[in-house]
Design a protein around this nucleic acid. Structure first.
Lengths: 151, 151
DNA sequence: GGAAAAGCGTGCGCCGAGCACGCTAATCTG
DNA sequence: CAGATTAGCGTGCTCGGCGCACGCTTTTCC
């Protein structure tokens, strides 16, 4: 074959994009954070960590979900104490969703777990390979065919 | 920070794992293949392409879905002519799901689209970088924290 | 040869998602 | 500045996918 590189990468990416892969990773990363945090609610937490206090409608646009879906996921997170609703001081109609300290901790723990898992699997790699991989993956994701994301 | 590599990779992978990324990729790759092929039914097609003719129960185990879910997705694909049911000659109870020629074509087209998209985005890369990326990504996926997949 | 097990499709209940509604508050307009 | 329009919110409702449980047929086991 003339250029097998594309197919090689496609195979690997195909695996990463699988539903079961996603489910497995989410399950592992959110384990023990309370049953309110799962594959469905985590994107709301994570989104808020990126944006800061945000309205349900804006957050929905940000992460590619319907406004009402965000509202209901936020309900669960609020009840679990990971998220707080507060009136927008600048707009009497709006309600801002904001992470609590527990919420921030949960997001941070999840991210740390992922990073740790990656580092562990890279531990046996030559350092040059690991650094090259990080650099190339970053570039690929930024400019590649999947760029510009939500959720 | 001592070892930022893990976090760098984590950020990039986080993006790839997002629901919206997955949805966008699937939509683009299965566009025009008929409305029977979507994010839900494609894994069945793709799984069958890997396994060859297979029972619903076995395929379900393979791709991490309930047997009945496979059956119903197969119904749609069968109606669209991408899949065929045939009695298992070795077992009178079993029904084998098998791709038709159209089904094989659809899977092949999808894979080709993904590979092409990747190659296009790599076109501007130094060839050595592209090859290194393919090699490192493959290794990472095989031995990394996400290894062993279904779906 | 009879009982247990394995395969299949389908009815049923559950849950998540989006639409539509009613309400309140802000913004626009004449 | 008052009325109308727009924007934001939560919730009732419907639709669709999923898994469990059932009934049936065929195979396997003792």
């Amino acid at each position: 074959m003339k250029n097998p590189t594309g197919h090689d990468i496609a195979d690997a990416l195909g695996l990463l994009l699988r539903r079961s892969t996603r489910a497995r990773v989410y399950t592992r990363l959110t384990e023990g954070l309370g049953e309110a945090v799962d594959e469905l609610t985590y994107p709301v937490l994570s989104g808020l960590a990126r944006t800061g206090p945000y309205s349900a409608a804006d957050l929905g646009r940000e992460i590619g979900l319907d406004r009402t879906t965000v509202t209901r996921r936020a309900d669960r997170l609020e009840q679990a104490g990971l998220l707080r609703r507060q009136p927008d001081p600048a707009d009497g109609r709006a309600t801002l969703l904001a992470l609590t300290d527990d919420g921030r901790t949960a997001v941070e723990a999840t991210r740390q777990r992922l990073a740790t898992g990656i580092e562990e699997s890279l531990a046996t790699w030559p350092q040059a390979d690991a650094q090259a991989f990080a650099r190339l993956l970053r570039r690929f994701v930024d400019e590649g065919p999947f760029a510009a994301g939500q959720d």
